[in-house]
Nucleic acid binder design. Structure first.
Length: 540
DNA sequence: GATACGGGCGCC
DNA sequence: AAAGGGCGCCCGTATC
């Protein structure tokens, strides 16, 4: 990945991925002299991670990779592909990043100072960074970035104000992702060790101890079935067979299937309890602590501003799926607190925005959206909720079916929007989110119909969330606050306790600002539940 | 030994 | 009661 930073006003610096910086002797040293309002164009935020770690604020960035992903869908967004699509070239003809013999040969035939090959594609060794060895070459690469940025910007402007606002928010989120990786999530290590011990036993010192702990976890399940030979509880086929011998006939051994059979045989509840503990032991156990929690008591994993589908953020190292029982271990530093905030009923509110259904938008003006919907449908609130969720997820059977008819009757505009998305997906036609992200449904299929139906909601909700997060990121900085976790509709901000109330207010204000910018109007209301806590688990 | 895939499950 | 979108991750099996 070519690591490059340029300021569109001509101020800026280029960093080669390896070796000494070229245009800037020392980017960290250069930063204080730069106007903080400098607009940056980056090939990707990750490419400028060293600058971010050196303290670059990068509050106004244009991330070529993220805007490319918005415009073209998918996740692959290296400079060679971004350049190719911006120039109207076949991306299949772009050089592949690894230095294969073929491209080395092509590069040999290219004049040493030419960035662009005769076929219009970028030279392969520029994309890997190997070619970026002189100020002139870096300047040429910077100029290519500038050209792509100009093209992308024209495209966003043509797509509308919201598409442009989304490009800025997605760019800022990519910077935020680098910051999240850098700062990490504060962990109370002792609390984490206690919780892991409860589930998995004490930390094993040898492979033999590890094996013993495994057998100890298995013992209660096997004890519920005396006389059974060896059963590998980690092998679903063997478990199913074991249950059949105990007189429990199930089509699969999934949790919801087994939960219906808890009374059938003592082995069933024992197995469910085993699953829960086994999950902590294997995924969030001693190895997880060792590998992902640093000596500074910070949980760190890789973050991405969008996945390759609808565009939600992704996180590794368990940051997005930490079991609730481990959350007490997520604790603010001494003298600090968390401002925890989550969006309320974000997906139905987004549906109102995306579909421009005025009747449904009216319901968003209630703090509890399902109450007015239920009243209008003449059903219980719980029924209305299930129906709305079913409509967004494409569920057709079950208790929701009847209430769905009510939704069709009362909110035809919103329902038609979802149906159009589903039809497109079923035919293999791409759909777009509210902010203009292309969501590809390459294969025509019923599954893709449901996927597309949900993607316009899930993806649009992700955009609103990121616009919010990007706004919060800047708003809490004067309070020495930092976003330390993003969880689809939830934000965790780590802040000195003396600024807690002010930070919480800033988080709420940021939602109003971001929603207005993203919606381009006030018709749809969004709400956040915001609180101040010392441990993540104290919330709600 | 590396890779792919499905079952299973945590979170949203 | 029943099964509908996304992600990351673990384990076991099959395959080359």
């Amino acid at each position: 990945m070519g690591a490059l930073v340029i300021g569109v006003d001509g101020v800026g610096a280029a960093l080669p991925p390896r070796g000494a910086p070229v245009l800037a002797e020392d980017l960290g040293g250069l930063l204080p002299s730069l106007d903080p309002t400098t607009r940056w164009v980056t090939w990707s935020a990750r490419a400028v991670a060293p600058a971010i770690r050196a303290g670059a604020r990068l509050d106004r960035t244009w991330d070529l990779a993220e805007v490319h992903r918005l415009a073209h869908g998918g996740w692959v967004a290296g400079p060679e592909r971004v350049w190719a699509l911006a120039r109207g070239l076949d991306p299949e003809g772009a050089p592949s990043a690894p230095t294969g013999d073929l491209f080395d040969l092509l590069a040999d035939e290219l004049p040493a100072e030419d960035l662009v090959r005769p076929d219009g594609h970028l030279r392969a060794d520029a994309v890997t960074g190997a070619w970026l060895t002189t100020p002139q070459r870096c300047a040429a690469f910077a100029d290519a970035a500038r050209q792509v940025a100009h093209h992308q910007r024209e495209g966003r402007i043509a797509a509308g104000r919201r598409a442009l606002a989304t490009a800025h928010a997605e760019s800022a989120t990519a910077v935020l992702c680098v910051e999240l990786e850098t700062s990490g999530l504060p962990i109370d290590r002792e609390a984490a060790r206690r919780l892991v011990t409860d589930a998995a036993g004490p930390e094993p010192r040898t492979p033999a101890e590890e094996l013993a702990a495994r057998e100890e976890r298995d013992a209660p399940v096997l004890a519920a079935l005396p006389g059974t030979g060896h059963v590998d509880l980690r092998n679903p086929a063997q478990v199913k067979e074991m249950l059949a011998r105990a007189g429990v006939d199930v089509p699969s051994t999934r949790k919801w299937v087994l939960e219906a059979q808890v009374g059938a045989h003592p082995v069933v509840p024992a197995l469910l309890e085993w699953r829960k503990r086994e999950r902590i032991a294997t995924t969030y156990g001693w190895r997880w602590l060792r590998e992902h929690v640093g000596s500074d008591d910070r949980l760190r994993g890789a973050w991405a501003a969008c996945d390759g589908a609808a565009g939600r953020m992704t996180a590794q190292a368990g940051l997005h799926n930490l079991p609730a029982e481990l959350r007490p271990a997520v604790a603010a530093d001494e003298g600090h607190v968390f401002v925890r905030a989550d969006l309320g009923q974000v997906e139905p509110r987004v549906l109102a925005a995306v579909s421009r259904d005025r009747a449904f938008a009216a319901a968003t003006r209630s703090d509890d959206l399902y109450a007015p919907v239920a009243a209008r449908l003449g059903v219980e609130r719980a029924v209305a909720k299930v129906a709305v969720l079913a409509a967004m997820y494409g569920q057709r059977s079950g208790p929701a079916a009847e209430a769905l008819a009510g939704l069709e009757r009362e909110y035809p505009v919103a329902m038609a929007h979802l149906q159009r998305a589903q039809d497109a997906g079923r035919r293999g036609v791409a759909v777009r989110t509210f902010g203009g992200r292309l969501v590809r449904t390459d294969v025509a299929a019923e599954d893709h119909g449901r996927f597309a139906r949900n993607a316009v909601i899930q993806g649009s909700a992700a955009e609103l969330f990121k616009a919010w997060a990007a706004t919060v990121r800047v708003a809490v900085r004067p309070l020495r606050g930092r976003i330390v976790l993003c969880l689809h509709d939830e934000l965790l901000v780590h802040v000195p306790e003396e600024h807690a109330a002010e930070a919480a207010a800033a988080v709420d204000r940021a939602l109003t600002d971001a929603a207005r910018r993203w919606l381009g109007g006030e018709e749809v209301h969004f709400v956040a539940d915001t609180g101040i806590v010392r441990r993540w688990s104290e919330a709600k």
